[in-house]
């Protein structure tokens, strides 16, 4: 059984293993700098379906199936499926779960869902409630834009602070035995809101949440940023990333070259017109399940801190003038 460390950090006694990962991404992500690291690059945003919503659900389903296939596993070998996405009532995950026929925990943590699922899955395994868990999260640019902002054909100018919702889905298999990187610790975040109301500046809204979670993590564990080969945030983008650095620096923790953000890695910000970077549940999911997992296997990193951030507003709450509440969860992943 695991134990609690400090205030909000958990430590696993038998750390679950990340034995396989799979990714499905849209064409723009495929053309980006990480194109080589993805398993499946779609030719168009519809993925042979009638609607973008169906396409997103299919991406999530296919990434989950692909992860199983990499480990030669069937649906019945998996104890629980943990997934979520950005759409109302997490329909992408719900409809994907309908066809996977695995007991399902639907999760919503907006863009933090992926790490939320990894930590929750690890708790299930370390607690002895499961031997194998499948986790996944997805986002789709067009489904998210029209739910949160404008129809895609609307002639609008995106502000420079706006982020581009990633079209993609990432899935991981977590197991109690085998080989692979291990999830050793996790810090569960609080909902933090510093009053940002601009949905075209999500990074800035989310930065305080991830700063809070990491500060808690450092205090709980006695670690400092240098203890990690890589500190990876989910989708802060350029503005949020800088704000996050500043917030940590003010509290005496300075981030070095070991800090990266999935939202900045996934696109060529100059050439791909992604403004401040990528965002969405799929962003951290595909960057981690693609590039980072591969680098862990190649032993480029031994210990990383992976924190995904989520903005928990809805289109309704924004129209009613509410600010954006945000959350961040962090997982420590080690491979020795």
């Amino acid at each position: 059984m695991g134990s609690k460390v400090g205030q909000h950090t958990i430590s696993f006694s038998q750390p679950p293993l990340l034995t396989a990962g799979a990714t499905v991404v849209g064409p723009m992500e495929g053309q980006g700098p990480l194109g080589q690291t993805f398993d499946w690059i779609l030719e168009d945003l519809l993925f042979g379906e009638q609607t973008w919503e169906k396409a997103e659900s299919k991406m999530l389903q296919e990434s989950a199936k692909l992860a199983l296939k990499k480990r030669n596993l069937q649906s019945q070998d998996i104890d629980y499926f943990l997934a979520g996405d950005l759409l109302n009532q997490i329909i992408s995950a719900n409809y994907a779960a309908r066809s996977l026929a695995i007991p399902f925990w639907g999760l919503f943590g907006a863009c933090s869902t992926f790490v939320e699922a990894v930590l929750f899955g690890s708790i299930l395994i370390d607690g002895g409630f499961a031997a194998r868990v499948l986790v996944a999260s997805s986002s789709h640019h067009n489904t998210a834009e029209r739910q949160y902002r404008f129809p895609t054909e609307q002639g609008i100018q995106r502000p420079l602070s706006a982020q581009w919702t990633v079209t993609g889905s990432g899935a991981l298999v977590l197991e109690n035995t085998g080989e692979g990187p291990r999830v050793t610790m996790g810090t569960i975040g609080k909902v933090i809101d510093l009053g940002i109301t601009d949905i075209n500046n999500m990074g800035a809204a989310m930065a305080p949440a991830v700063a809070d979670t990491l500060l808690t993590h450092f205090q709980d564990t006695g670690m400092n940023p240098d203890a990690y080969d890589l500190i990876l945030t989910g989708d802060l983008g350029v503005i949020g990333g800088n704000a996050f650095r500043d917030l940590l620096a003010k509290r005496g923790y300075s981030l070095g070259d070991n800090y990266h953000d999935c939202g900045m890695l996934i696109y060529d910000l100059e050439k791909q017109d992604a403004h401040a970077g990528g965002s969405g549940c799929g962003c951290s999911a595909v960057v981690f399940s693609g590039l980072i997992l591969r680098q862990l296997w190649e032993k480029q990193y031994r210990k990383i801190l992976f924190a995904a951030t989520g903005a928990l507003m809805s289109a309704t709450s924004i129209q009613q003038g509410e600010s954006i509440p945000c959350i961040a969860h962090a997982a420590v992943i080690e491979f020795n």
Partner: peptide, 11 residues
């Protein structure tokens, strides 16, 4: 009107 006022100004 769009650039110099609040960010919540839409088309």
């Amino acid at each position: 009107f769009m650039d110099l006022t609040r960010s919540s100004i839409t088309p």
